[in-house]
Design a protein around this nucleic acid. Structure first.
Lengths: 224, 224
DNA sequence: TGACTATTCAACTAATCAGTTGAATAGTAA
DNA sequence: TTACTATTCAACTGATTAGTTGAATAGTCA
């Protein structure tokens, strides 16, 4: 009986550790974070996470073995995605645990954002309250595909690398609130920095769509 | 800017991967599961997880570095424990994700419980409904310390290795519901098997106190 | 203080994993 | 079919991790 129950436990915990192993690499977490914005090809994932394609593919295989991502073929490309919302929610839970318990995380954030003179981001509550206001415009500065896959209602899509060219369409009388993928994506930081240099009144909302959705708030889909 | 934002991301995800690394070993998950029942000494943890003391201590160091456990000294012993409920909840979330997504888990469970002729456990809802009934007695078959640290209200403490000697105190007219640490602890399985062999009407509730608590149900503390 | 014990550390071996490179595969388009 | 391309596989190196053993440490108790 003892021998058998030891075997049972060893087998069971070994299964759960597959998920732990998949989460044990920084790059795989970055891939999960990217995929929580929507599906992507290996190529795009590799570029965004600064990986070679072969290496990225291998990491994706590992994630797939732990059932944290799944793949779908379309023409020449293989698209990877999160199989359901539970995985995205779990990644959020891991992140939150790290933010609470690992003091180093706060240090890194502070260090980086001080370096770039970044002001305190606005809270979710404040964003919700101000969304309807005439003198406020919300910018989604992620690539267009991600905006299309889901965005804050009434937000306007202005990908960060096109912001420069679209400055003329923005009014200096409005207050601009920019958001991107989440607290560890720097698109909104860059956007706000640029806008301020040009004399706009701009602030940053630091959460992304996954957090917005997890809080039960409505998400708009499509061209907006 | 690119160089810096890559460095930032690498640092941030590396921090989160510390948690992943800590979760990447079956034995460490087993230790977390044990600790979610309450604090314990290194010696006890080592015995329960079938580890050498030195090896167990090392695993605990690793968990401590990821801030998933903390230590407290009392007399000759060092007690390890989960620093707060968030860690226990996170372990539950990981487990649930595994149960849903890793098909192998179900297979292992089925395999083992078929082998032991185990019937379907009763649901949480049924347990709640029947707790007050005169003809039902709920047994907590974990070691006494764990019962003392928190148990289902009105449950009686009968550690599984003392069950044999206490059979005379149980009535064959009552229905017995036994529970232990959770679905991967086999105390309740053993208890129910013994009771049935002796002609008692016994069933198993397969969740433990962490799940009970996470569902917002009341927990009784002390000698009961 | 000194004897004692639980716990941790240090050093080592075997095993596992990350990342690189180049070749193979599987699917598309002509 | 053939040419083409995105993706994956296979083999390798260097780095990291698990687990073992024996010694050191830190605290208790008389």
């Amino acid at each position: 009986m003892f021998r058998q129950s030891r075997m049972f436990k060893d087998e069971i915990y070994k299964q759960f550790s597959r998920i732990g192993k998949a989460l044990a690499s920084p790059k795989r977490l970055e891939l999960l974070d990217l995929l929580s914005q929507g599906e992507r090809t290996v190529e795009k994932l590799a570029r965004e996470a600064s990986l070679s394609i072969a290496n990225c593919s291998k990491h994706l295989q590992l994630l797939r073995e732990a059932r944290l991502v799944e793949a779908r073929r379309e023409g020449l490309y293989v698209f990877y995605r999160l199989p359901d919302d539970a995985v995205g929610a779990f990644w959020l839970a891991l992140r939150r645990l790290g933010e609470e318990r690992l003091t180093e995380v706060e240090g890194i954030l502070k260090n980086y954002f001080q370096l770039h003179g970044e002001l305190k981001p606005i809270s979710r509550q404040e964003l919700i309250e101000r969304i309807g206001e005439k003198r406020v415009v919300v910018l989604d500065v992620r690539p267009v595909e991600e905006y299309t896959a889901g965005h804050v209602p009434s937000a306007v899509s202005v990908p960060v690398d096109k912001l420069q060219r679209r400055l003329s369409k923005l009014s200096r009388d409005q207050e601009i609130i920019a958001y991107c993928r989440g607290p560890y994506c720097l698109f909104a930081v860059r956007a706000v920095a640029l806008l301020r240099r040009r004399g706009f009144k701009a602030r940053r909302y630091q959460e992304g769509i996954p957090e917005w959705k997890a809080a039960g708030l409505p998400v708009a889909v499509g061209e907006g």
